[in-house]
Computed example of a mutant assay.
Amino acid sequence: MVQLRARQIVGSEDLTALHKSNLRKTQDTDERIAAVAQWKAATCFSEAERVALALVEAIFVPDAGNERVSDALYARASSLYDDKALATLAVAIGQVSFFIAVALLENHCLGARQAKAGARSYGYAFVPT
């Protein structure tokens, strides 16, 4: 869910489709997958999932005061996740951030070459179409 929400925020249609497909393979429901974009209003997520999605949004979309992860959000996260789980979540979000940066740069740096070759980019690997 974290990867899907991050891809939705940055507007990566190919990677959004890829992560939806990956979630379906884990037996997640179409209802939950479709609800990720509007997770705040959805009732199908646990409190821990809501906090994870809130962390993704806080990292990728600063609030009006340009704050990323507020003390209150961190307190909620640390109340739901032990230190190891919170660190794992932070690494997962960091990994998503890394590959988003690669995908965004790849689109600019390799876009012309990709168009000539008829390849499709999934952010970090080219897959022939």
Score class of each variant (00 low, 15 high):
Gln3Ser: 10
Leu4Glu: 03
Leu4Val: 07
Ile9Trp: 00
Val10Ser: 00
Gly11His: 03
Ser12Pro: 03
Glu13Phe: 14
Leu15Phe: 05
His19Lys: 04
Ser21Leu: 07
Lys25Gly: 03
Thr26Tyr: 00
Thr26Trp: 04
Gln27Trp: 09
Gln27Phe: 09
Thr29Asp: 06
Thr29Phe: 02
Glu31Thr: 13
Ala35His: 14
Val36Glu: 02
Gln38His: 11
Ala41Thr: 13
Ala42Ile: 09
Cys44Met: 05
Arg50Leu: 03
Arg50Val: 10
Ala52Phe: 00
Leu53Trp: 02
Ile59Met: 02
Phe60Glu: 00
Val61Ser: 03
Pro62Gly: 10
Ala64Ser: 11
Arg68Ser: 13
Ser70Phe: 13
Ser70Ile: 12
Ser70Gln: 15
Arg76Phe: 07
Ser78His: 14
Ser79Gln: 14
Ser79Asp: 15
Leu80Cys: 06
Asp82Gln: 12
Ala85Thr: 03
Ala87Gln: 11
Leu89Met: 00
Ala90Pro: 02
Val91Asn: 08
Gly94Ile: 10
Gly94Ala: 07
Gln95Thr: 15
Val96Met: 07
Ser97His: 04
Phe98Tyr: 15
Val102Asn: 10
Leu104Trp: 08
Leu105Cys: 14
Leu105Gln: 15
His108Lys: 15
Leu110Ala: 06
Leu110Ser: 06
Gln114Trp: 05
Lys116Gly: 09
Lys116Pro: 02
Ala117Leu: 11
Gly118Trp: 06
Gly118Asp: 02
Arg120Trp: 09
Ser121Ala: 08
Tyr122Arg: 13
